[in-house]
Amino acid sequence: MIITDWAWLYIIILAVFVGYEVISHVPVILHTPLMSGSNFVHGIVLVGAILALGYATNDVERAIGFVGVVMATLNVVGGYVVTERMLAMFKKRVVEK
């Protein structure tokens, strides 16, 4: 599947605006968790890394692909746990109130 039409540009422009809207109303206290949260979201790169390794046909590609999947998984798992730990603190405070 090779991109031939303009649909991509529409998608990208809309994604840019959604990203802008989401962030522009964020209070400062959530800057750090949100940075961490968006760090987790680009962990979607794991999908691409799995596909790259899944279609690898020689040892060089397999080696690079393997490293890619390990790194992407670190992004996903580490990103999730770090964000979750930060946000857990906000929950604790709300409960105490």
Binding site: M1, I2, I3, W8, I11, I12, A15, V16, F17, V18, G19, Y20, V22, I23, S24, V26, H31, L34, M35, S38, N39, V41, H42, I44, V45, V47, G48, L51, A52
Partner: peptide, 23 residues
Amino acid sequence: GFAISNYAMVVAGILVGAAGTIL
């Protein structure tokens, strides 16, 4: 994502790119 034609990567990546730039 673009290079390997994976829509999920394109949209999520651009989303973070835009949000991260504003941040």
